[in-house]
């Protein structure tokens, strides 16, 4: 690669932490904070259900619960049926939802709606509390449902 003029400004750990919102599938990046299914239910009904439907079904936007499993004639890409990692729910909701006001929920609120979505998909009990540790521990039903095409791309 051609040599550059080295104009990059060193980034401090604080700079980085302020921007880094990646959550890794092993839980790396999960913030402190926590939320319950019940809190999530209330948040969901007021901030999410308008598009995604009550209980994550029947809205104008993507369905977030239910759905047919991989291998069935009409498989769905819903969280419980398809998503390999629960951490992805936290990562995505925090960065992108609600779509009309992204970044408006605080981390505990994101834990709470994530908990409610996992509950709707039968992956958490109604009384559950979610935090970094409990979220990283969840094994999703379709965890092994993917085949990496890269780098062995046929």
């Amino acid at each position: 690669a051609p040599e550059g003029p080295r104009l990059g400004r060193p980034a401090s750990p604080q700079d980085i932490a302020a921007q880094d919102i990646t959550i890794f599938p092993d839980g790396g990046g999960l913030p402190t904070g926590l939320g319950t299914v019940a809190e999530g239910h209330a948040l969901y009904d007021s901030h999410c259900a308008g598009c995604h439907g009550l209980k994550g079904m029947g809205g104008s936007a993507e369905e977030l619960a239910g759905g047919a499993p991989p291998g069935s004639p009409h498989p769905d890409r819903t969280i419980g049926a398809y998503w390999p990692y629960a951490t992805t729910v936290f990562d995505y909701v925090r960065r992108a939802m609600p779509i009309d006001a992204p970044r408006s929920l605080n981390d505990s609120q994101v834990y709470a709606v994530t908990a409610y979505l996992l509950y709707l998909n039968g992956l958490l009990g109604a009384q559950a509390t979610l935090d970094a540790r409990t979220l990283a521990a969840i094994k999703m039903p379709n965890r092994d449902g993917f085949q990496r095409v890269w780098p062995g791309h046929p």
């Binding site: 990646t22 890794f24 291998g71 992805t88 993917f146 085949q147 095409v149």
Partner: peptide, 24 residues
């Protein structure tokens, strides 16, 4: 990162039930 768009989307379910991922 296993981001939403490299897991829930932009992956291809196959009849076997196994989805192609990182099909770049």
């Amino acid at each position: 990162a296993m981001a939403r768009n490299e897991t829930a989307q932009y992956t291809e379910p196959q009849p076997s039930g196994i989805a192609r991922q990182f099909s770049f």
